[in-house]
Design a protein around this nucleic acid. Structure first.
Lengths: 233, 233
DNA sequence: CAGTGGTCTAGACCACACG
DNA sequence: GTGTGGTCTAGACCACTGA
């Protein structure tokens, strides 16, 4: 029964020093008496918990997640703001900005026509060098200039607009999902395809009630704690 | 490249009639020109979207998810209440009630001593015969009698207490996570081990602010839509 | 270059459902 | 019993990293 493998792996991780490298997959699999596929399956849980970090061509390392980025969902704040508050430094990587076309569903959500020119911004947020979130924003053209993006953008469309003061923002409506990481997500977050990630699909509104930003935010579960208070009646 | 497989599977599902059975895994794998393992990997996404339903010993079936159970997170309501509102009938299965001991973390959360007698209630919620949620509640002993459970319990601890009127309930604090299904969860929800599910880890409080119920709620993503409004500043 | 993780394959055995 | 999905194995090849 490979529930054992899970427990034995847990033990191995528990006694390892932070930063320690595990045996290579073939060796570890042999030592545990299971196939490599089974071992990798068992590793999945610990990866999404942020306890293991795999690096292709290098090895698998034990990680001690530092502080967890915690947030109540009632307030809209960027990851950078949240991280700042607990004194955690985050950086941005793999920034890609491109003009893009809206697909049908997105156009409908944003109340735009299909031929609206739009800008897609994708990037990875790293905490202590580890990718922890993958964000993709889609905005109608005209809200972001290329100079602004080059000079001011630090990872958050929200922060940029708040700093700029225009347009005035009011709220975001987010849909919360759990999804299996597709190839683009698993690559960006450095996890296995099919691993579980938390996805916020959000629409950001201005004070006038205009949708101004459609975003997909993929979060590595182990590094974030989102909570919400739900009232009876 | 097995991204193709994903798309081809998508196409197969799209043109299939609801309720239609797919070819068996070995046959379908051969037809698509991939191994069974690869095919199963590709199937994962569609399972958690609720588009495929696998039944051991029977086959894999195409499902058209009917209505999605949608809820804002600000208000605490049971799945039964939400389903009722959209006219969807849900039933309860695999009810298990047992006395249990608190583990360390749970005891701390509930502000109880480790030797407190507690009751664990687990059950599966089915919508149209399909398991869509797996709920595990832990309560200190004394709140639920066995007669009540036998006669009144329809799947929701919340509804039972609200109906009874005591203790008076105020709110729940929920932590939202994405997790890979462990064996117990995958069995209960009829999905593959490691599939992504949405997990709410909640603590329910009385009007006096006493924690009275600790619950883990695992949701099959495709059948639920949770949303929340997040305000700026 | 050698060694790592990422992916895929072919085949096996099991537990289960149904006739 | 027969056929299904659930799980595991052994082995292969690739892409990537770092010396």
């Amino acid at each position: 029964m490979s529930k054992d493998i899970h427990n034995r792996l847990e033990e191995i991780i528990a006694v390892a020093e932070p930063g320690e490298r595990l045996l290579s997959e073939p060796k570890l699999a042999e030592q545990l008496g299971v196939s490599r596929a089974t071992l990798r399956e068992a590793m999945r849980t610990f990866e999404t918990q942020g306890l293991l970090r795999r690096r292709q061509g290098v090895g698998t390392f034990v990680v001690r997640p530092t502080r967890v980025i915690e947030s109540g969902l009632e307030v809209l704040e960027s990851i950078e703001t949240l991280a700042d508050r607990i004194g955690l430094s985050v950086t941005m990587g793999e920034l890609q900005i491109s003009k893009c076309r809206l697909d049908n569903a997105t156009a409908k959500l944003m109340q735009l026509s299909l031929d609206t020119e739009a800008i897609c911004v994708s990037r990875v947020i790293l905490a202590e060098g580890r990718p922890v979130a993958y964000l993709v924003d889609t905005l109608p053209g005209g809200y972001l200039s290329s100079e602004e993006m080059a000079n001011e953008f630090t990872g958050s469309v929200l922060d940029l607009m708040l700093k700029r003061g225009t347009p005035l923002l009011e709220s975001a409506r987010s849909e919360i999902k759990a999804v299996a990481a597709k190839p683009d997500v698993s690559r960006a977050l450095n996890i296995q395809r099919g691993d579980s990630v938390l996805l916020f699909e959000s629409l950001l509104f201005t004070l006038e009630g205009l949708p101004i930003d459609y975003s997909l935010s993929y979060f590595l579960p182990g590094y974030f704690k989102f909570h919400v208070v739900r009232r009876v009646g």
